[in-house]
Structure formats: structure tokens, C-alpha cells
Design a binder for these strands. Structure first.
Lengths: 191, 191, 191, 191
DNA sequence: AATGAATGAGAATTCATTCAT
DNA sequence: AATGAATGAATTCTCATTCAT
């Protein structure tokens, strides 16, 4: 009970303030529990943060895996990956930014390594989807890990840029990224 | 004299620690000046940081602009943009990450806005190059700002992934991104 | 427990050093608590100071109000007001001086306004006693607020002057002020 | 030249900020001189402050002394003393407050003693006028030093209270204080 | 006479964490 | 399970003063 309230409040505060400026005080306040309770449920700030990140990654992975099990074409799979990531990046912009980027220094190095690994795991998960495309001969022979990392970064950065400018429909944005990712910027890129 | 030493030390410390964990104390220590000197030359931590970011953006813009003045083909221009960004992201990985991503909360909002604007300015600068391609009919009819933002994010994220794994040559990485950006992932993306 | 110790120490330090030169460090030291504890119990220096001032005013008001309830003559009431203020100004000279005069700049303006209001409230409280005298036809028809403010200032300033010169008995001082305040300086001031 | 500019600026800044919050930086800025120049003309902050206070006291003493030399009646002399002090307290309220009250701790004790002496000198100067009244048999047989100190405090405190409320004419205020000081508050103070 | 870069001691405040209950 | 008082190390920033020029 308390634990859920804490996690929920922590998501809010970390989203609004970023890791370093988020304070355990405020998380406790928003969760409506005493500060000591945070330390009953979590060993410390870093581990509380890690819990959120883990849950976040797990959720998006779960969503995508559902699509994979549906036996969709690679085309469609890529579209879905884009869509799920867009949902995350557009609807939970701040949190997503922190989850994907606040892997910087100043976090207990032990926890930091775990956080980095979570991101790498996610990249590898996406990379696996692409590898399948390569095996089917639909995808260019490129380093899929790099491609996956690049795609995430592209989506994240562009969504960050879009932030607060609701000028494009979700539909349009989705198509834009699909085109860029599958066919690139140039017309007649005969290749 | 002192000012240069401070900026130099600040780059180091911000790179290693990120904005929030970087302390003015340590910057002073590394710059070999008294703590008060930081505040003689800069109004505060946020503005010191801003100065670095500004210089960083200015330098990459200058490098790219030199190429633009050389009247290269769009193809070549895109290659150069990739190369210059790679140099930044691979050689100054930490700093670049901070400059491009530490625009999060917890920085004096006034300065934060300026920092965000610097990034937007850079995106628009790159976007301008792409727009020219569109006018020439070589580039797809897409939102160039979004494309520029996406490219930066892709490069940044992928380079972050590569970090510490010197398994690919700079040459190879460059070609990888060029292909992805210009022609996409799919092989017969007839469009 | 800690809170009382802090308030007690704060009174000491503010009295000795004045608001600006009093340091939170020293207050903590004298209270025998950690510096952080000050901020656990009070939002900051200004609010800690305000707490003291509030308590100080409340105490003198309470003392005077007790006399008022005793149904004394105006004469006697004025004597008591003088006596209670003298007690404050002579026995806690430094603190009183700060409470009544350190309402100067350099304090968080929000708190400063509250502090000024506390003083004004005290003046109005005394003024109320004088108004009653006017209604009874015993007192001159003067602006009672101004008179109350003047009386406080007169007592404070004269006590400050007396400071460290224990040449007059409390009794004598009291009679001096009673005469001046009720009858003025001139002999035969027939009016 | 520079010296006058500094004194002028210092009056401004000390008035606005009080002694402790006034900074040499700002004084130099407003005086349009380099910070180092302050230390060329004055040994330090405390001595600069002392200079102002000295000049301030000297001026009001000079004004009153002019009246004394005019051989006015005690009545009229008291009126003039009230008027000159009112001018100071109403027109330069902040500065006057600081000059008369910022004799608190945190100023180099050597200079502090001189400042206290300046105030005592002024009290004794006024006291001298009252003593003359006593000799003439017009004034009650009271401690004139205490009376003088009280009068100054009364004027200062009441003017502070009036601050920002321009509801009474200068003329009226003057008469009010004259009545209180000479005849007291009670109507038939037959004495 | 005047400058202004540089200093360093101190100040307020923040905050993750501990621990007795 | 939960609390909340207490901590103390770390951090940003201020400012009178010095000194070489």
C-alpha cells in the first residue's frame, strides 16, 4: 500500500525535478507518508529511482512483446515500436527523458551500472526485432544494436523538440518517423 | 587569464560529474583559483555552465559553416554534419551528453530557457541545410526541424551506446549513419 | 525539546549580535544541536527571528492585559504600561532594541512585513488604552496611535541611553517617565 | 571629487539596505568609481559609515545652533528642535533610522564606540538647551539627558510609524509633539 | 589618485540518511 | 510497518579587503 503510494509520488517528483533535484522530503510529502517510510521500503534514493526505471522499461517491453507475439510483418512491427515509444516520449515526456538520459554521474555507481544495463537491455531487445528483419533479407546489413540505439535517440530527441508545440497530429508524427527510419531522407536513394 | 582557467576546469568537472554534482568548489580547485574568483567572473553556477554550452555550440556551428561556404553537394554536406557531430559525441562524450541533455530541471529557469534556445538554434541551423536540399528537390518533403532534431538525437544516443567499446572505426560509423539517414533501414524502400 | 533549546539560544545570539551578525552556526552551537536541526524546526533564519519577536510581543501584551482586566484607573494603567516596558527595555535591553528596531532592510520582505505588523499591532494595543482615556475626558484630544508610538520610542531610547549606567533607581526612572508623559516638561503649562 | 561621489552613494545605499546589507560593491557601483577607490579614500566600511553619521549629526547640530544664537525663548527653541528633528526623520527616514539605531554590534568596536559617542554628544547638546530652561525656572527639575534621549526616541519612533501615511500635515505633527513634550497627555495635570 | 582582478573566510541552506520509538 | 526528530556533510553564494599596476 505504502509502497505503491511512494512509487507513484516518486514518478511525479523525479519527472518534475530530475534525479538530483528531486528530494526524498518531497516524495514523502506527496506520497503522504513519513520520510522514514521511504527507507523502510527502499534502501535509498538511488534504488527507489532504479525501481521506477525498471518498471518503466518493463512496461514498454511488455507492450511491444505483445505485438511480436501477434506475428505481424516487420513493417508493422517497426510501426508499432515507433508508436509505443512515441506514446512514452510524448505522454510522459519528462519521465522518459530522465529514464533514458539521467544515467549520468552522481548516482551510486553500483546502481548506476544496473540502470545503464537496463537501457542496454532495452536496446538489445529492439535490436533483436531488427535482427529478425535482417535474417528475412528485408533489412540492410547494419549493426542492429547501433540502429536500435539510434532510433530511440532519434525519437526521444525529436519528441523533446516537439514538446509544447501541439502542431502535428500523432498520426502524422508516426508516419514521419516511419518514413525516415525505413527509407531515409533522400529521394531516389537508389542504393 | 583566470577566466580561461575557470572555463577549462569547468568543462572538465561538468563533464565528469554532470551539472548538479559538479561543485563550484571543485571547479575552483582544478582551476587553481579561489572560490570567490568564480563569482567574480560569472554571476553563478548556471551562468558559468551556460557560457560553456554557448561556446560548445558555437564551435560546432563554426566548423559546419566552414563546410557550407565551401559549396559542397548536399550529400557531402550531410556527411560533414555527421562527421562533425561524431567528433563531438565521440571525443567529448560526457560533455556533449550534458550539453545536449542536461537541459533538465533544477537550473535557474531564466538560464534554462537560454540553454534550451541554444539547442533549438542549433537544430534550426542544421534544419536550414536540409531545407536547401528540399528546395533542390533532392530531399523528401518532411519537416526539417524534426528531422534535424532526430538526427542529433540518433547520433548522440548511438554514440553513447558505443562509448567505451572501440570496436568500430570512425570511418565505419560515419558510413553507417550516412546510410541510415539518407536511405533508411529497409533495402527496397521503393517508397 | 530541541525547539525550545533553539529558541533560547536564538534569543541569546540575536541579542548579542543583532539580526545580520547572528549566525545560524552559532545558534546551533549554543543550542547544542546540529545546524540541520534549525532547519527542521524553522524554515529559515528570518522565520526563526520572527518567532522570537512574536513571543516577545505576546508576553508584554499579556502582562499589560492582565492589568487592564484589574480595572485600574487610567493613571495607574499608564504607570503599569511604563513599568512593563521598562522591565523589557532595561532587563533585556539588547533584545528589545533588536525587536523594536531591527525591522530594517535585509530581511526577507515577506517576513519583514509580518514583523512590522507585529510592532504596529503592539502600538495599536497601547493606543487602545489611551483612547479609553480620551473617552473618559481625562486625556488630551490627540492622535493616540502617534502618542503610543512616541511613548515606546521615548522609553526605548532613554533606556538605551541609561544602559550601563546604573545610577538611577528603577523607581525613580518610572516616576520620571510618568511625569513627562502625563504632564510634560514645562512647569505651569497651563495649556 | 571622488570622495564626495562615494559619500553620496554611500548615504543612498546605507539608507536603503542598512549597514550590514549595504555592500561596498554597490556603493562603488553607484558612485561610479572602482571598488578599490573606496579603500583609497576610507580605511574600510565602518569608517566610511562613521563619516556619514558624523556629517549627519554635524548638520543638525549646526542648524539648531543657529537658532540658539538667535536668542529665542525656550518655548521657541523647543519648537525649533522638534522641527529640525522632524525634517530629518520625515525627509530622510531611512538614513535617520540607521544613524540613530544601527549602533548595534557587528561594527568594528573601535568605530562603534565613536558612533555611540556621536549620538551621546548630540543628546548632551540638546540636554544643554534644556538645562538652560531649568536654570530659568521654566522647566521641571528632571534629568535633562534622559529627557533629551527620550525626546529623540519619541520623535524617531513616531515618525517611523507615520512613514508612508501622509495623513497629517507637517504643521500638525509639529504641534502635536510640542504639546506632548511640554504639557503631557493629561488635561488637568495640575501637578 | 585610481583601478579592478583576485581572494578566502564565512554564511545560509539543502538533503540523504539514521534511529529510537 | 511506519514514524518523524535529528543529523552533519556538502553546496552555493556573499563580501570586505588586498595589491600589483
Amino acid at each position: 500500500m505504502s509502497k505503491e503510494k511512494i512509487i507513484h509520488a516518486a514518478i511525479e517528483v523525479f519527472s518534475e525535478k530530475g534525479y538530483h533535484r528531486a528530494s526524498m522530503d518531497e516524495i514523502a510529502l506527496r506520497a503522504n507518508v513519513a520520510k522514514g517510510s521511504l527507507y523502510y521500503h527502499f534502501p535509498g534514493k538511488a534504488q527507489l529511482f532504479k525501481t521506477l526505471v525498471k518498471e518503466g522499461f518493463q512496461e514498454i517491453i511488455d507492450r511491444i512483446r505483445t505485438d511480436l507475439n501477434a506475428n505481424l510483418s516487420l513493417d508493422e512491427q517497426i510501426k508499432r515500436i515507433i508508436r509505443h515509444n512515441l506514446e512514452l516520449f510524448l505522454d510522459s515526456s519528462n519521465l522518459a527523458h530522465i529514464v533514458f538520459n539521467e544515467l549520468s554521474n552522481g548516482i551510486e555507481s553500483e546502481v548506476l551500472e544496473e540502470l545503464k544495463q537496463l537501457k542496454v537491455d532495452y536496446i538489445h531487445f529492439l535490436s533483436g526485432v531488427l535482427e529478425e528483419g535482417k535474417r528475412e533479407g528485408v533489412l540492410r546489413d547494419v549493426d542492429c544494436n547501433l540502429a536500435a540505439a539510434g532510433i530511440i535517440g532519434m525519437l526521444e530527441s525529436a519528441c523533446k523538440y516537439l514538446d509544447n508545440k501541439n502542431e502535428m497530429s500523432r498520426e502524422l508524427i508516426e508516419r514521419f518517423f516511419y518514413t525516415i527510419i525505413t527509407s531515409g531522407l533522400l529521394i531516389n536513394s537508389g542504393e
